[in-house]
Each structure stands twice: as structure tokens, then as C-alpha cells.
Nucleic acid binder design. Structure first.
Lengths: 341, 341
DNA sequence: ATCCAGAATACAATCGATTGTATTTTTGAA
DNA sequence: TTCAAAAATACAATCGATTGTATTCTGGAT
């Protein structure tokens, strides 16, 4: 009863057919007559045979599995990306192992080790906010295991990155605030060793400059953009001398958390402060006023990243350096200021 | 450069030591002298050796991997459960494969097949809303691979279920509405072949009866509780003859979606209709009025389920039939009716 | 110097499936 | 009926690590 573990050898014995033939039959090889195939298939289902992927993968040196490293699956953006990845992966016969780094480098390193030991065929990764070195990615080179970055692009080992144009999106978002009359705009930025957040900051600065607003260092606030950070940031904003009339946050989580703090403390949005976020979390449309935010093609990003990776796994062909997707600003109540002055 | 694939045999050759000794050394066996161990370890890192888990797992018939089947990772409740599972799993040296069924039975079946082929040591599953038969779980019995249900308990093969007491929580939620003066309470129920949703319905009915309110079939609305369902349900509620003054929804998603529809259509919450949800989604505290809801120990549920599974994997000992966790009602604005009449 | 127990290491089979090569069987044409 | 080519099947090595058993080595006691 326990450990039935039917193998091709059991089928082989039961039918008096060599195990190699059984294997070929189960893989629908043309080297086996259809009559024998039928017999084998029948016996296989009768005995409840299940291929042992471990053995198969060991022999073929191929696992049809791709590893996905994600900072945090609970973020709506990421869970949508994952859905996109899964869809494309399954369509192409690949399995997916999802791992959360929880924004920790230590965890990310452990994950990469595990993925390597498990001989995944490729990895899709959005690096953690703590990741400053790429040493833990080195071994993948030796194994010829391709890596594709998504959302958070990286200049590493000629790997492909799939992302939106964060500079442009940021520029648009900031410019939108400016068009609405904001003159002192705070930027809630993410860790600046991450290219993504650098680009968002650059877009912000560039928009300011284009419109003759000087970049004021005291209006740039760097955090990890968590919910807790949002509250801290809001407090800081209230105390900034010279006042603040707009906030462009590099994600919705911090923007919404700050908004809630403002609301509790009588700061009127958007009248006193306009706010723009990033990611279009479902919550952004529910909060009042609803949050203006940058919408990214998350699901599609997952599909495209997975496709790019699978192409590299299969053909080992030339890699595109970067795949850049479009994004758009969704204007909502948090920034629709009507200035009467 | 490509495919370096260092094996224990490479180390073996490089040092003139048998591969069995190398294997033992890498596993820190007492049968190898510490001097030799040191030599081997050094050579291993020098060559960049990585254990091939496929080979190891094949030989030992153990993968130290548990499969997690989840309806949808984007649901906050589930992503928290997963975090709990991961934490406990990693602490115990287990890897985790996360798979989304997307509430589809077909997908769930495919997933179970893959997990079986990959010879996971155990499975944690919250069945999909379409799952009415458990045929796809049968093979796991033969392999002696334990299954533990979480969140959505199941009476199947003596497997352990980890969940809250849905009947009680539901009872409390409904009673809360009654205490607030509601007399015609609609229940947004989930698929009734799922034990979880049966229990929630039973709790609802029981609370009604306790307070002398008759169960009115027309006030019980069964759907899959999606966002779209929420809108449809809200429309129905508005048209129910005899009126409705309270809603107890079996999840927050549908409750919030309905709330938004009500707000857009001038139905005042909680004055005209009080609402209680289930799950304590982050969004429930942001919407206005904030949503009264049942909070479950999600992270903890993940930890406990993982622990239960690992115990079964390790000791194959007596299984607890059911592990029931506590839950509590978080009262917020959507149900704090102040009746002046 | 000799012998023995225990430590250290080597040998060889094994996990289950795959695959190149060899052998047998079948088929069709002469 | 015979034979070569093609089809079908069998043989055997292999993937990389593990593990029971056998062998060699070591140090200490006699």
C-alpha cells in the first residue's frame, strides 16, 4: 500500500517488454509500434504509473522548471506579474517555483542557491531592495542558466531586463503635478542603489527642471516605501519648512499610508497637497479621494519576461538587452486640484 | 565555460579520493576524518561544486520540498498564509513550491499531477471553488505523501485540516448585525459544496434563529464572491422586495465591491444597510466607511499547517483530524449603525 | 616485531528514466 | 523461398549522489 512507486521496470516486467521500449512508448517515440504503445499505456494506467521527474530530469539534464524570485507576493503588482509568468510558463510546458525574498539579500542568496541545486532551467528575478552585489548570481553563468530581470532592471552579465520606462513614467507623473499647480513637490523615493528607483528619481528631477523648478534635496525622501515608511514620511512632510503642495511617491503603498495619515490629521487632499502614486494597486481606487497613479502592464510584463527567458533557455540565442513596456498615468481625485487663487 | 557541472567525481579525481568518501565528507559524515573533510571541502569550493539535488533526491527518495496549492496568491489572506508556510518550512529545511489553482478544478488537477511527478514530500492545499471530487488526490495515498488542508477544510482520507471555526465566526458576525438592529440580513455565500461556505451559512442561519429571525431563502445569495459578483449582488439586494438592512458577506472582496456600488448609487452605509465582511483585507480599513470584518490568524495558520504537514512527513505519526484556530470580529464603521427611529 | 580493534577509505550496487547501439523481427521484392 | 532493408525491440551505459559492505590503514597492547 505504502510506497507503491510504480516504475517503468514494473511495466516492463508485467509485459515482458524491455524498459527502454516502455520509456520510449511513454514518450510517444516513433521507434515503438502503436500496438505496443497501446499495450504499455494501458498497463501504465492500470498500475497507476507516474513518471519520476527526478530520474528523468537527472538523465536529461533538464527540469522544465523556472525559478521566480519576487520581493513580496502580497504586493498586487507582483502577484499579477506572477500570474502572467505562470500563464506563459505553463503554455510552454514549464513549471514555476515561486520564492519570496521579502526584500532581504540574505534570503535572496539562499533562494538562488536552492534554485541552482534544483537545477532550474532559468530564473526570473526582481532583486530585493537590499541587493547591492550580484555575487550570488555568478554561479548561474557557469551553468549556462539564463537569468532575466523583471520590474527592477539590472546591468549584470548582459542579462535581459523587462520593465517599463521608469524615467518617463516618473517624468509624466511629476509633470502632471506641476500642471496642476504644484510648486514644491516631495518625492518619496526607494533605495537609490536600485536602478529602478534611480530612474524614478531622475524622471522627477528632470520634470522639475523642465518647468523651471529647482531640485531641492530636502524634498527628496528615501525609504523602503513600506506602509510604516508612509506614516513617517507624512510626518516629515508636514514639518517641512516652506511647505509642500505635492507628493510623487514611487509606490502606492507609501502614498496611501501617507494619505491616511494626512486625512487623520486634517490635511486636505488634494486641496492642500496633491498626491501621485505608482503601481495602481486596487486600493488606490477605493481610498478617498482616489489616488492618481501610474499603471503598469503587470500581467503582460510577466508574460513577456517568461517568454524572453524561455526563448533563451531553448535557443540560447542572442539576448535582447532590455524590453521596455508602456505605462500610463491614471488621473484620479488625489491630484485634481482646483486652485481658485 | 558552459555547463561546468562539477560533480563529486570531479572532486574525487582531483584528490584521488573515492567519490563515496567525497559524498560523505560533503554530508559531514563521521566516517570521514576531519583532515580529509577539510581537503574535500576546500576543493569543492575551489571547483565551485554544487550538489545536484536531482541526483540526491532520486537516491534518497526525499525531496525536502512541499507543494502549496493556493486558489489565488493575490488575495491578501492567502499571501499571508503562504508567508507563514514559508517561514516554518525554511526553518525546518524544506523548500516550498507555490501553485495557483485560480479556483479552477482543471488547473488543480494538473498541479497535483506535477507535484506528484516531482515527488514532493507533502502537500498543503486549499481546494478550489470548483472542487467537488477528490479523485486527483487519490494517488497521493499510494505514495504515502501526506496532504494537509488549510483554510478550506475537507473530510477526505483522514487528512488534517487547519482552519478557523467558520461556524462560530459567522455566528458572531451575523449576531453583531442583529445587535445593531438589522432584521433583514442578506448573506453573500460561497459555493455550497465547500465545507467552509456551508459552515459560514450555517452560522448565519443559526444566529438568525437564535434571535427569532426566520431564515429567508431569498436573502441567501450564492456566488463565487468575486469583485464582479459583488456588483451583481449589490444590484440584487437593491431590488429585493421587503428591503434589506444588513449584509453579511463571506469575504471582503464581494463586500467591498458591493459597498462601492451602493455608494455610487446613493445607498448610505451603514444607515440604510450595515455590512460585515470576512478576511480583514487591507482594503477593508481604507474604504469609507471602513468595513467591519472577521480577522483570521492567516500567518499563523500557515505556520501551523506547515508544522502539521512536516510532522506527518517526518514521523508518519497519528494525524490530528482538525486544528481549529481562533478568529475575531473587527467592528468598524460599516456596521456601527446609530438608529434614531 | 606481531597482532588486533577500530578508524578511514575504497568498492560496487542502486535510485528511475533515457538513449546510443546492437539484435531480432517483419516486410516486401526478387 | 530467400534476402536485404526497414521496423521493432533488447541491451547496456549513463545521469550524480548515496550507502551497505569490503578492504586498508593506524595506533596501541603484547
Amino acid at each position: 500500500m505504502q510506497k507503491s512507486e510504480v516504475t517503468i521496470h514494473d511495466i516492463s516486467k508485467a509485459l515482458g517488454i524491455d524498459s527502454s521500449t516502455v520509456s520510449r512508448a511513454l514518450n510517444d517515440s516513433p521507434r515503438v509500434s502503436s500496438k505496443t504503445k497501446a499495450k504499455i499505456l494501458a498497463k501504465a494506467t492500470e498500475l497507476g504509473y507516474r513518471r519520476n521527474s527526478l530520474a528523468s530530469n537527472l538523465r536529461t539534464n533538464k527540469t522544465y522548471t523556472i525559478g521566480v524570485v519576487v520581493p513580496r507576493i502580497s504586493r498586487n503588482f507582483f502577484s499579477n506579474v506572477i500570474s502572467g509568468i505562470e500563464e506563459t510558463a505553463y503554455e510552454n510546458g514549464y513549471n514555476v517555483i515561486i520564492c519570496q525574498s521579502l526584500e532581504s539579500l540574505d534570503r535572496e542568496q539562499k533562494i538562488m542557491n536552492t534554485l541552482l541545486s534544483n537545477r532550474v532551467d532559468g530564473v526570473l528575478i526582481s532583486i530585493s531592495m537590499e541587493t547591492t552585489s550580484f555575487k550570488h548570481l555568478e554561479p548561474f553563468k557557469n551553468y549556462g542558466t539564463p537569468i532575466v530581470f523583471y520590474d527592477r532592471p539590472c546591468n549584470y552579465g548582459g542579462c535581459t531586463s523587462v520593465s517599463i520606462n521608469d524615467f518617463e513614467a516618473s517624468f509624466m507623473a511629476t509633470e502632471h503635478l506641476i500642471f496642476n499647480g504644484c510648486k514644491r513637490i516631495v518625492h518619496f523615493g526607494g533605495p537609490q542603489h536600485i536602478e529602478l528607483y534611480q530612474n524614478r528619481k531622475k524622471g522627477y528631477i528632470s520634470a522639475l527642471e523642465k518647468h523651471g523648478l529647482e531640485f531641492d534635496k530636502t524634498l527628496f525622501l528615501e525609504t523602503k516605501l513600506t506602509e510604516e515608511d508612509g506614516v513617517k514620511l507624512a510626518k516629515k512632510v508636514i514639518n517641512i519648512k516652506g511647505g509642500v503642495d505635492g507628493i510623487y511617491a514611487a509606490n502606492d503603498t507609501s502614498a496611501i499610508s501617507a494619505m491616511r495619515y494626512f486625512k487623520l490629521n486634517g490635511v486636505i487632499i488634494p486641496d492642500e497637497i496633491s498626491i501621485v502614486g505608482f503601481n495602481n494597486d486596487p486600493i488606490s481606487v477605493v481610498i478617498e479621494p482616489s489616488l492618481t497613479t501610474v499603471n503598469q502592464p503587470d500581467f503582460e510584463m510577466g508574460q513577456i519576461a517568461a517568454k524572453a527567458l524561455i526563448d533563451q533557455i531553448k535557443e540560447k540565442k542572442c539576448k535582447t538587452k532590455a524590453l521596455v513596456l508602456g505605462s500610463d498615468l491614471i488621473v484620479r481625485g488625489s491630484s485634481s486640484k482646483i486652485r481658485l487663487s
